[in-house]
Each structure stands twice: as C-alpha cells, then as structure tokens.
C-alpha cells in the first residue's frame, strides 16, 4: 500500500503545482505520462465459483481466508477481512456466480468525500487508500453507493479495507492477483477501453449467452470493474437502480455555491451593518 519515494515526490509536485499555478498547468504535466484507466472485466458465464480469487486475494492483501462457499440463498458479504466475495444466485438462467469487490469508479464518491485525499483515484485507475492521510471519519463509507469501504471497528489503529486492484503489483507491471490466478479466465485485467471493446465483442458474438448489457459502462458515471452476464443483473444481487450520473455530481452544486456565498454574503452583511449603524447612534444618544 505504501507509495515509493519517486511517486510521492511526483504527486507532491503535481499537487504543489496545482495549488499554486492552478489545475490547467498540472493537467499539462500529467499528459506526458499517457496513462489510461485500467479495469477488470468479469464474465459471470465463465465463473465456476471455485473461490480461487478469494483465496489469492486474501494472500496478496494479508487478509483472512474465505469463509463458507457460494450457495444460492446464502448472501456472503465483503468485510474488513475479505476484500472480495463470490456469491451464487438462482436466476432465470440457472445458477450464476457473481463476484463483489470495489468497483473502482471513474469518478468515485469515496474520493470526492475524502477530506484528506486518503481515498485516491490513481491515474492508472485503481482507487486506493492511504493510511498516512486517513483520519478514520468513514465519510467514504457513507458516500459509496456500493458500500465498498470497510472499517476495522475492533482495532485501536483501524484501517479502511477495500480492493485496491492490487495497485502495487500493477505499478510493477503485474496484474491483480484475482485476474492472474482465475482458472476459468472469468477475470480479465486491462485498460478500461480494451475491456469494454472485449465485452461488447463477447456479447455480439454470443447473443444467446449474454444479456445485452455491460454493468459498469455507465453506472455511477462508469466504473473500472465491468460485468457481463447471462442473467439480468437485478437477479444477481446487483443494485441496478443506481444513477448513471457520477455521485460526486450530487454535491457539486453545493460546493460550487460556496465561493459565491463567501464573497456575496459578507458584502451584504457589511451593507446592512452600515445602513443600520445610524440606529445605533440614535439609540445610544437617547440613552445618554
């Protein structure tokens, strides 16, 4: 989870520049890197529910081994000791497995919520958590529409736990543990653009197998984790009622009004004060 020194300096530089010169200049600097958002494509038609992904995820992130196994009617949930979970649902297309973990939104609510940028959307795409910044306010948990970030309630030095798309491995040119080890090739890592192309290709080539929808293409402003499936997503315990607009959009209006209020309101108050000042003198004269 730690960030190496070079990246820290780079980030610090970009932040420093953006704080002093403004965003436009920092954006130009970033362009030179030419990095695209990465993501994961999960194909539920290929998943056999073997729990390899859960096991290797626990090993890679030093968390607990999986408990129980996917069965229809049993809802297992991610928690502070399990970053990913595979569940099984009885659907109109038979029993279907579905994997749950952080969605790595393009515009994450948790990142917009974080007042210290501890939740951070890397330029490579993964959303990571940085313990040296986090104050443990759990506003990310309140804001995340997918209920992804988990908090260690029983620790005096609690961490926020969530899937990081194995960011450290990605930085070294590797791929996430779940994608690397999936024996059924149900989990594919790549750039988001490639994955969307691949997902569409699979749907077009097998119209009878797949439903014509990629979950994550537009939901919550687009997510890094993409799903294709044989059964409708609402039969798979996935919240299909989420908005397509990104979630930070919801508080943008309020935040944009802040500078205006900060300029206009004091001016008005000062105006009223000057206008009513007369009363003050009149009254105090009367008293004296």
């Amino acid at each position: 989870m730690s960030i190496n020194r070079r990246d820290f300096l780079k980030t610090a530089g970009v932040i420093g520049v953006s704080l002093t010169v403004g965003d436009s200049f920092a954006a130009v600097k970033n362009k030179g890197a030419e990095v695209e958002f990465h993501g994961i494509l999960y194909d539920s038609t290929r998943c056999v529910g073997c729990l390899t992904c859960e096991t290797v995820c626990a090993e890679a992130n030093k968390l607990s081994a999986p408990i129980g196994e996917p069965k229809p009617g049993v809802l297992r949930k991610t928690d502070e000791k399990h970053n990913t979970i595979v569940n099984c649902y009885k659907t109109s297309k038979g029993e279907v497995f579905i994997k749950t973990q952080c969605m790595h939104c393009n515009e994450p609510a948790c990142v917009a919520a974080c007042l210290t940028k501890a939740m951070y959307k890397t330029k490579e795409g993964p959303v990571i958590w940085r313990g040296n910044k986090c104050m443990g306010c759990r506003y990310c948990m309140v804001s995340c529409p997918f209920d992804v970030p988990k908090f260690e309630y029983h620790s005096s030095n609690p961490k926020i736990q969530k899937c990081t798309m194995c960011f450290e491995k990605i930085q070294k040119g590797g791929i996430p543990a779940c994608a690397e080890n999936c024996p059924a090739e149900a989990i594919k890592f790549g750039t988001r653009r490639e994955l969307l192309k691949e997902a569409r290709k699979r749907i077009v080539e097998n119209p009878t197998t797949y439903i014509d929808e990629i979950y994550g293409d537009h939901t919550a402003g687009g997510t890094g984790f993409l799903y294709i499936s044989s059964a409708p997503f609402n039969e798979l315990g996935i919240n299909t009622k989420l908005q397509n607009k990104s979630y930070p959009e919801l508080s943008k209006g309020f935040l944009f009004s802040v500078p205006t209020v900060f300029v206009v309101l004091p001016t008005i108050l000062l105006g009223i004060y000057e206008a009513t000042k007369k009363n003050q003198f009149n009254e105090s004269n009367e008293i004296e």
Binding site: I15, L19, V111, A112, A113, C114, L115, T116, K117, A118, G131, N132, K133, C134, M135, G136, C137, R138, Y139, F151, E152, N157, P158, P248, S251, F254, L255, V258
Partner: peptide, 28 residues
C-alpha cells in the same frame, strides 16, 4: 471520539492533503 484515526485530524488543516472536493473538508 468518532474518528478512527484521530491523530490524523490535523491533516486537512496542514495540507496532507487538502481534499477540496469534499463537503466534509469544508465543514471541518
């Protein structure tokens, strides 16, 4: 009392980091 990591409470004040997109940053 409600902060899990209260020793980091000064982070948004000293700029580690300024999470300016956060409503909570404003409130704090």
């Amino acid at each position: 009392l409600d902060l899990g990591r209260p020793w980091n409470v000064i982070n948004p004040i000293i700029g580690n980091d300024f999470g300016t997109s956060s409503v909570l940053f404003l409130v704090a």
